[in-house]
Nucleic acid binder design. Structure first.
Length: 832
DNA sequence: CAGTGAGCGAGCTTCCGCTTGACTT
């Protein structure tokens, strides 16, 4: 019988600790918070000193029931949640919910999971720190009040189901302001001038760059023309040593950034894989803001570095956190066993583990040492200079393990005043770059720098602002621009025109129109809440609560009085905000033209609500309320429903357009207005609305195409919502990337059909005579499920899929679909 | 798949942080 029950937050941690503590201790986990504010009435009694009403979170009912059983069997309950504000609150909530007694309850903390630290903690128990608990309650209640009241204002003034909050609204604001900076950015052209120089003997050569940017083609040409019989020489050679130090071990945020940069992982993928590594016992906890390594880890790092690389690579380093608002309840993210070089066979886990291991070891290694050489090339009688720099690694230090793309750039040995010849000079036209858009990881970094959000919320925050329609993550093709390339060789100047792509974006975050409208609205009415310093300001006050200097509900009251007044004012006075921008007047009808958010997205509108008849046209995907011009709006209204006119179909004589539709780019045969039913065809991958030709589009209208018969049934090739496919016997088979629906042969189609049948057979677990459309099959992830009414219903692990009968399946399906089916009202459609 | 867009207004939505599975098409 174990006499002591220890409760920690994470089950993986529980397992480890149980090993350290021996038979008298049972270690269980609370799985994080167990209680939260009720939803009704905000879960806060505003008139009664903001008294919170807590309820057990629905998904924790079972956890609590289990813990209650364990409590009954224990003499002493030891609350061992994390050593921070949230952890202290968890301990208190457990105390309350489990109805613990002061006498038989202890509170312990440790920030290192080692046998020594835990034994030490158990031997020195304390009690719950209520100041810290109150600081957490203040944090929670403030977030609830701000979140729910602001969201409710948005529902009334902008659009239903929107959200706002202390963290997410600032994240959205960052995206919006960056986007506007980029839009306002005026790109300037300039010329980068470089030359290749060579010693008179021809044995040593190097490239160097002019120390001055030239702005126009004219400047370049006159500079080149001024170089009649130029005398180049080595003006200066400078050598100096350089050093680079390793970075601190990983925190959640820095891990997300590096995994994004080096492995191309989105933040949620990084966290999912890190969680796996943690659960398998390979790394320490992955949600942390600490850069601290335990004494044990430091010792292990020393051993591994000295063994693998030798003494002169080891250097003990202690890092201090720089991030605001850090709670440091955990260690930095590091391997649990540093000498373990490899962990598993899935390559993503392996790669992330390797990154963590190398970063940890590197953090305890010596500096990398360089020798940097700067060479300046002069021209006799001119002020212009060319410069080149080279870097040679003298001692790798930590770079031995944590490389940062450092290649030696070698310069030849050169002597001051030595003569040089130029093989050629060249000038390439460049454009100054606008500020970089945020990626997921760089947005997280920005939030962390401002002390907003916590390690456990970075990834969820990104998902939330995306789910609310404030942001899209996209890759966009750059714009092709003509650039000039001017070359001076053998005293002759040549000008070449070249094409270069600028501004290509890969997996970047773009704020939507609704994000701009909401941000402006919040800025106008709740400036202080989405101020970048708001979190830092309230954090200061939470700290004072934690130190017992101020009373938590007084702090909330001070904040809320003012805040709530603003909420009331806004509801009363602010106009409904659809982000309307008046663009001007229609030169034909004289009616007003405006751009705003419509029910289905951004639109331009002809006329005002007083006018009899309004006309609308949706904005294209690449157009925004922010910056659409009157001319563009007129064009949209003019072509409303049509799009870019490509020409006429030679057969029917009808107009052919390409336009954006609900699910992507389509070609359209016939006018939306005059023709009853235009014919549509989805564009193929690689076709672009701006570049596709009439000929290519006319080909598309040949689809669906009969390609022959197979087993006595017709085979048809076409393009659908999910791409090109063939249909046979009312079954669909997707085409492979290399197949073209316009040219695919019946032979190839047969192959694909057979392949699909084979695949389906492997997926099939069971089918029924009663109804052919109901099956038990494996889903995309290989998990057994019921296929019913074109939907997949996942089976719980307890059910044996092979033993299911038809009736069982129907029962499960009805239960699942019935319970999740929401009473969705169909919008009434009226036709005038 | 390839249209729609006001207002009418019932009943819904929403926050941040701490944790894992269960879930996804």
């Amino acid at each position: 019988m174990s006499k002591n029950l220890v409760i920690v937050e994470s089950p993986a941690k529980a397992k480890t600790i149980e090993k350290f503590l021996g038979k008298d201790y049972k270690v269980k986990s609370s799985f994080g918070h167990v209680r939260d504010l009720a939803k009704k009435n905000f879960g806060v009694d505003i008139k009664n000193n903001f008294k919170p009403e807590y309820i057990i979170m629905p998904d924790k009912k079972k956890v609590i029931a289990d813990l209650k059983k364990e409590v009954k069997n224990a003499d002493t309950v030891i609350l061992a949640s994390d050593e921070d504000r949230e952890g202290e609150a968890i301990a208190w909530h457990l105390f309350e919910v489990l109805k613990l007694k002061n006498k038989s309850t202890q509170r312990i903390v440790f920030n290192e999971i080692t046998k020594e630290a835990i034994k030490n903690a158990v031997e020195n128990p304390g009690s719950i720190n209520f100041n810290l608990v109150n600081a957490q309650q203040a944090r929670r209640i403030l977030d609830r009040l701000v979140g729910f009241e602001l969201s409710a204002v948005l529902w009334r003034k902008v659009r239903s189901k929107l959200s706002a909050g202390r963290v997410q609204s600032v994240a959205v604001r960052l995206l919006v302001e960056k986007e506007r900076e980029i839009n306002a950015f005026k790109s300037e052209e300039f010329y980068k001038v470089t030359g290749e120089f060579v010693s008179p003997e021809g044995d040593r050569s190097f490239k160097a760059e002019l120390n001055k940017k030239l702005n126009t083609e004219k400047d370049v040409v006159s500079f080149f023309e001024s170089l009649t019989n130029p005398e180049y020489y080595v003006f200066d050679v400078e050598k100096k040593p350089g050093k680079r130090s390793p970075s601190a071990p990983f925190t959640t945020s820095s891990l997300q950034q590096e995994a994004s940069r080096k492995l191309g992982f989105p933040v949620n993928k990084t966290m999912r894989i890190a969680q796996k590594l943690y659960e398998s016992g390979f790394i320490t906890y992955m949600r942390t803001d600490s850069v601290n390594l335990s004494s044990l880890a430091l010792k292990a790092a020393k051993e591994v570095v000295e063994r693998e690389f030798g003494d002169k690579y080891y250097k003990k380093r202690i890092y201090k956190t720089k991030s605001k608002n850090a709670q440091e309840a955990h260690e930095a993210i590091r391997p649990t066993y540093l000498d373990k070089k490899s962990v598993s066979n899935t390559s993503d886990e392996e790669r992330l583990y390797n990154l963590i291991r190398k970063r940890t070891l590197a953090s305890q290694m010596t500096d990398a040492e360089f020798e940097r050489t700067n060479v300046t090339v002069g021209i006799k009688g001119k002020d212009y200079k060319f410069t080149a720099s080279g870097e040679v690694l003298k001692f790798p230090g930590f770079l031995k393990i944590y490389s940062d793309k450092t290649e030696d750039t070698l310069l030849p040995v050169l002597n001051k005043n030595e003569k040089l010849n130029a093989l050629y000079l060249e000038a390439t036209e460049q454009f100054s770059k606008p500020p970089a858009r945020y990626s997921e990881a760089s947005l997280v970094k920005q939030l962390e720098d401002k002390g907003i959000g916590r390690p456990s919320t970075y990834a969820p925050t990104i998902s939330t602002i995306q789910a609310r329609g404030y942001m899209v993550k996209e890759s966009r093709e750059g714009v092709k621009k003509k650039v000039k390339h001017i070359i001076l060789k053998d005293g002759k100047i040549k000008v070449k025109n070249e094409t270069k792509t600028f501004g290509t974006e890969k997996n970047k975050l773009f704020p939507t129109d609704i994000a701009m409208v909401v941000t402006d609205f919040l800025k106008d009415n709740f400036e202080n809440i989405i101020d970048y310093n708001f979190t830092a300001d309230v954090e200061k006050q939470f700290d004072e609560i934690a130190e017992g200097k101020i009373i938590w509900h007084k702090m909330i009251e001070d904040f809320y009085d003012d805040f709530h007044q603003k909420v009331e004012n806004t509801i009363e006075n602010a106009e409904r905000n659809a982000g309307e921008r008046i663009l001007g007047k229609d030169p034909v009808t004289g009616k007003q033209i405006s751009a705003r958010l419509g029910k289905y997205g951004p639109v331009v509108q002809l006329g005002t609500s007083e006018d009899e008849k309004l006309k609308f046209a949706s904005l294209r995907k690449d157009q925004h309320i922010e910056n659409i011009t009157l001319e563009e709006a007129l064009e949209l209204l003019e072509n409303s429903g049509n799009g870019r006119l490509l020409g006429k179909d030679p057969v029917t004589g009808k107009n052919v357009y390409v336009r954006f539709a609900r699910y992507g780019a389509v070609a359209q045969l016939g006018d939306a207005k005059s023709d009853k039913k235009p014919k549509y065809a989805g564009l193929l991958k690689g076709m672009n609305i701006d570049t596709v030709t009439l000929e290519e589009v006319l080909e598309l209208f040949k689809l669906p195409r009969d390609i022959g018969t197979f087993e006595g049934k017709k085979v048809v090739a076409a393009v659908g919502r999910f791409g090109p496919y063939i249909r046979h016997d009312s079954k669909f088979v997707s085409l492979k990337k290399t197949d073209d629906p316009l040219t695919i042969t019946i032979e190839r189609a047969e192959e694909l059909i057979k392949e699909k049948r084979e695949k389906d057979k492997k997926r099939l677990i069971k089918e029924f005579k009663e109804d052919e459309t109901v099956k038990v099959i494996k889903d995309r992830w290989g998990k057994p499920c019921i296929y019913f009414n074109k939907k997949y219903i996942r089976l719980s692990a307890k059910v044996k899929p092979e033993e299911l009968t038809y009736d069982d399946c129907i029962k499960i399906a009805e239960k699942e679909l019935g319970s999740t089916k929401k009473t969705k009202k169909t919008t009434r459609k009226t036709k005038k």
